Simulated scan of single mutants.
Amino acid sequence: MDAVARASAPIDALRPRRLRRRKPLRFRNGLPGGRLFDVFADRPLGGRLRAARRLTLLALWTLLCLPIQAVLILLPGSAKIGFARLYHAVLSRLIGLRVQVIGAPCRDGPVLFVSNHSSWLDIPVLGGVLPAAFVAKSEVGTWPVIRTIAHLGRTVFVSRSRGTTAREAQAMRDRMAAGGSLILFPEGTSNDGTRELPFRTSFFAIAEGARRIQPVSVVYDRLGGLPACRRDRPHFAWYGDMDIASHFWRLARRSGARVTVVLHEPFPPGRLPNRKALASETQRIVREGAERLRQNRPVVPIAPPAAPGAAGP
């Protein structure tokens, strides 16, 4: 009878008895310590604890520094500038960013630092590297907490409305006439971090008040210790309808993040004939440096444009 059954179902005759299991095989984790030490598994709890720790330290550091800067800003001297750089540098580390700087900031002030702009992260990054105040849109002055930090950082707010443009431009010229340097984002807004938007020539109306212009390229080029690709840009770039809270939380959960700041060679604004040429040449330098960083290629500060009638810079 058994032979007849096997003949009626030939495939059963070829199937070994040991594979006819009622329950599937289950393998235990071979790594010691179970799931907690499984390096190949997701660890959402670890990321949340890291983000919560960073947020707590950031809040404590800010609460400690605000009254100190409030006093320093009332006193003469450059202590308020140095302390603002210290605050932003530590802030970048607390967020989880390692800042790599190529080149050196120009000391022949006042300097107009011109940079690409992809995120609110540019503020603590550049604030910790450059001895200068930011030029920001007026909306920033209405955001809770951030507006207080911006005011203590001596930020110059611009509304870009026709009725106030002349007055705001004069305020920036007065700041530079007093010896203060400024950080300008001539794109006018942030973007997805994969390219640079056209530099607006209107932002260079104050260029004649600076002794030097220094182009700056900023690229967030590492995440998890590996080169950042297009897929990783939303962890750094802040654009569209993103809100700061969720954007910060998503980045703070990650480790191994790095940003590279390239400080190109400065040049006098009078070297170029007009604002249009100044915006075009500055954007070329910033773009070339940023593209090299995105391609994970070595980069050095780019030389300034040649003076009219000269053979070289």
Rank of each mutant, 00 (worst) to 15 (best):
F199W: 04
Q170D: 14
G180A: 13
E196R: 12
R222W: 13
M172K: 00
R212G: 06
G209K: 10
M176R: 03
A169M: 09
A205F: 00
P215H: 12
R195E: 12
G188R: 06
Q170L: 14
Q170G: 15
V218W: 04
G179E: 01
E168Y: 05
E196M: 15
T164R: 11
L184C: 11
G225P: 06
Y220I: 11
A166R: 07
T194C: 06
R211K: 15
Q170F: 08
S181Q: 02
F199A: 00
A210Q: 02
R173A: 15
E196I: 15
F203T: 00
G224M: 08
A177F: 12
A166N: 02
D192V: 10
R212S: 10
N191D: 15
V218F: 07
R212D: 06
V218C: 09
A207Q: 02
S217H: 09
S202A: 10
G224H: 04
S181M: 12
A178P: 00
R211E: 13
L197T: 07
E168W: 08
T189A: 13
F204R: 01
M176V: 05
V218N: 02
R167C: 03
T189N: 12
G180Q: 10
R200Y: 07
Q214E: 10
V219T: 12
P215K: 06
R175N: 00
T189V: 11
P215S: 11
N191M: 14
P186H: 05
I206H: 00
L223K: 04
R212A: 11
Q170W: 05
A210H: 02
A178W: 08
Q214G: 10
T165A: 15
S202W: 01
S202P: 02
V219F: 06
R167V: 08
F204E: 03
M172P: 03
T201D: 08
F199M: 08
N191C: 15
E168K: 05
P186S: 11
L182Q: 04
M172C: 14
Q170S: 15
T189G: 11
T165G: 06
V219Y: 08
P215G: 13
M172W: 03
R195F: 12
G179C: 10
A171Q: 12
V219R: 08
L184M: 14
V216K: 01
V216D: 09
M172I: 02
Y220G: 03
G179W: 13
Q170Y: 05
N191W: 07
R195Y: 10
F204Y: 05
A205D: 05
G179T: 09
G224A: 09
R211C: 13
A207F: 04
E168D: 13
F203H: 06
R175D: 01
M176I: 13
M176H: 05
E168P: 09
D192Q: 07
R175K: 04
D174T: 11
F203Q: 00
R211S: 03
R212T: 07
A205T: 04
L184S: 10
E168M: 02
L197F: 08
G180R: 08
V216E: 10
R212Y: 12
V219W: 04
G179D: 14
